[in-house]
Design a protein around this nucleic acid. Structure first.
Length: 672
DNA sequence: GATCCTCGAGTTCT
DNA sequence: CTCGAGGATC
């Protein structure tokens, strides 16, 4: 063996060589050398690294066998959110999508990039200066889990993508999945070892990726396909999505071979049909196909609605269906007292899992579908997730089949049940005096998106409420380890964890707190709007319906339920109790306090001389303002260009401030 | 008054 | 994910 330089060079050469063969084998499925020869190269590198531990690099192929288990996964914030896609289930929805795109772009016969939609888990792979630095799950789209060690074991994921010039930052988005054959093999092995089998390839892939011990992940054969980009610096400027995919393929990422560029609705539905016919023969599961507007500049113009892009849609295949029997229809009581009938089904395997329950939503739904106890029904997993009763097989209805009747009294507390005139749901009238509602309210309060109290689950809440230890959210902050440790399935240790989690929750944001209160009709988004607008809890508590309606997206109904909530002495007491327990809000200055554009609503009318309408909109939104289409009393400014229309008159009528273009530019300038 | 879009609430299984 | 309802818009 030569000097250290030669050893280092040899190791580097081996690493490149092995990764090249990995690529040939796992990505192209075209091995260049026999397995034995590959193994020899691999062993040589292992031995070199064993003798010279300084040579081991994180992107060495020997590191693909996994490392010692981690305690837990760290949290990762995605630089660019990993959003989900809207779905289309039939051709009408696809043509509606295409119509919206054409209208927004003012273009005919739009070009789309089409590709299969893999049924796996979305992940993000961050490459820094050409080497895999971090891999994460999608999580809620904004933050996911750091599963770098596990993703490193996936052979099809390049550790050093061979782009000619490695960009300083490259975030590749794609799907991790398990091939059908590997899934069968894994289950055979699990069975032989007497371990639990996986229900479907997707669960197997998910289970494998979430292993704390990446050595286990390394033994599971996972596949990967890239389909997009997240954050990037120094990457070539593409004009089309299809070019980006070509670039990824050239960089040695596996990309769907079935991808295509098509035009118009006919092209889309034709692609969907072609893939649908072939999909059984694919080595992996897909649950539909994805269409993206191919022109990237057009994608940018289309932008996003809430959590999904407007330029892309997933066209799903029809869900698998199966027949089962309705054994009973039970009634559940929700947080708002809503009574929901749930069908208890004879267990049936459908869409990759065993289904035993399916919500029937409400009485009307049961009547519409004419579902009776004892019926044989067709079940599917709506959107491949939530079980749904599709229809009754009437010819199999037994004579003993019975109608369902909504109980007149709450099954939990026995109070009267009322169904309002024009509402679909029946509700228990006891409010928080009903233990079921109280429990649900507490669970909501503790939920991740609210106060995020880990460990306070339904079993614990059940016991706390049943024993009368906790009546309101404020009582949670008086719990001690002694009280908790006395409960079932709660020892010192877990009790202490819960107390610590409750303690941690005292530091929160006003928006989360408002959401946690569980005011009727006030969800996450409205809670954020309220926090934003009022800035202080005290101001919200005092607000009357009039001032509540000044908040964007708050109308008479939300204003009324909010005002009513705070008017209730019992609720005021709980809020005071919580503040007294030491709940503090991170200071988030309100938009209103910050500037003249942020938090304000603008309406544009007439032609602007210097700014295109779109550009004006973008610049207002970039500073936290919003642009509405019509003038109302919630409008803060009307920007009138040349030849303003009726909006100008309306503004005068309502006494809304009117700006000319220079006035707008001045406002925008002051903010900058 | 009709229609589009978004939000809230309830739900399944692992 | 789906439904229903609320809010904004035309």
């Amino acid at each position: 063996m030569g000097g250290p330089r030669e050893v280092g060079a040899r190791a580097e050469k081996l690493r490149r060589e092995i990764e090249r063969h990995n690529y040939q084998y796992y990505v192209l499925d075209r091995p260049l050398i026999p397995d034995a020869q590959y193994d020899a190269l691999f062993r040589e590198l292992q031995q070199l690294e064993a003798r010279h531990p300084g040579l081991v690099t994180p992107d060495s192929p020997t590191q693909r066998v996994g490392t010692a288990p981690a305690e837990a996964f760290a949290e990762v914030t995605h630089r660019v959110p990993m959003l989900s896609l809207n779905n289309a289930f039939d051709e009408d929805e696809v043509s509606a999508f295409d119509r919206r795109v054409r209208e927004a772009l003012e273009r005919e016969n739009v070009e789309y990039a089409a590709e299969p939609k893999f049924d796996g888990l979305a992940v993000s792979l961050v490459y820094e200066r050409g080497a895999l630095a971090r891999g994460a799950t999608r999580g809620d789209g904004y933050t996911g889990e750091d599963v770098t060690a596990n993703l490193r074991t996936v052979r099809a994921i390049p550790l050093r993508p061979t782009a000619r010039r490695a960009p300083p930052l490259l975030e590749v988005r794609g799907e991790v999945l398990m091939l059908k054959g590997d899934f069968e093999e894994l289950n055979r092995a699990q069975r032989a070892r007497g371990e639990k089998e996986f229900a479907n390839p997707r669960n197997a892939a998910a289970g494998s990726l979430r292993q704390l011990d990446s050595r286990v992940t390394a033994l599971r054969k996972l596949a990967f396909f890239a389909y997009g980009l997240g954050a990037a610096e120094g990457v070539p400027r593409f004009t089309k999505h299809s070019e980006l995919l070509d670039y990824l393929a050239a960089s040695h990422f596996p990309v769907a071979t079935e991808r295509a560029v098509v035009r118009g609705v006919a092209g889309l539905t034709d692609y969907h049909r072609r893939i649908g016919e072939k999909r059984q023969r694919f080595p992996y599961d897909i649950d539909g196909v994805v269409y993206k507007v191919n022109d990237l500049a057009a994608q940018e113009r289309l932008g996003f609605v809430a959590r999904a892009p407007r330029f892309a849609i997933a066209h799903k295949f029809p869900a698998e269906e199966a027949a089962s029997e309705v054994l009973a229809i039970d009634v559940q009581v929700g947080r708002t007292g809503a009574l929901t009938p749930v069908a208890r089904l004879k267990p049936v395997f459908v869409g990759g899992v065993t289904v035993t329950n399916a919500t029937l939503h409400n009485e009307d739904e049961i009547r519409r579908k004419d579902i009776r106890i004892g019926d044989t029904v067709v079940v599917r997993r709506a959107g491949d997730v939530i079980p749904e009763v599709v229809r009754v097989l009437k010819d199999r209805r037994p004579a003993r089949a019975r109608h369902f009747a909504m109980p007149g009294r709450c099954p939990v507390c026995g109070s009267a049940v009322k169904r309002l005139e024009d509402e679909a749901v029946a509700r228990c009238t006891a409010g928080l005096y009903c233990p079921a509602q109280r429990k649900q309210a507490l669970l909501h309060f503790a939920s991740r998106r609210a106060m995020d109290i880990e460990g306070l689950g339904d079993k614990l809440v059940d016991q706390l409420v049943d024993k009368g230890v906790v009546k309101t959210a404020a009582d949670l902050y008086r719990l001690d380890v002694g009280t908790l440790a006395g409960l079932e399935r709660m020892a010192e240790k877990s009790g202490a964890n819960v107390v610590a989690a409750i303690e941690r929750s005292k530091r929160t944001t006003l928006a989360r707190f408002i959401y946690a209160l569980g005011i009727r009709n006030v969800g996450e988004s409205t809670a954020r709007d309220l926090a934003q607008h009022f800035g202080k809890l005290e101001d919200l508590v005092k607000a009357d319906e009039q001032s509540l309606q000044q908040v964007p997206d708050v109308g008479p109904v939300v204003a009324q339920s909010t005002a009513q909530f705070f008017a209730e002495p019992r609720n005021r007491k709980v809020v005071d109790g919580l503040r007294g327990a030491g709940i503090r809000f991170e200071h988030v200055p309100t938009m209103r306090a910050r500037g003249k554009v942020a938090g304000k609503t603008f309406v544009l009318t007439g032609a602007l001389a210097h700014l295109a309408r779109e550009e004006a909109k973008e610049r207002i939104e970039a500073r936290g303002g919003r642009v509405a289409g019509s003038v109302s009393k919630k409008t803060d400014y009307v920007v009138a260009g040349a030849d303003p229309g009726s909006k100008y008159d309306k503004a005068r009528e309502l006494g809304v401030a009117v700006l000319d273009e220079n006035g707008l530019l001045k406002l925008l300038g002051e903010e900058a």
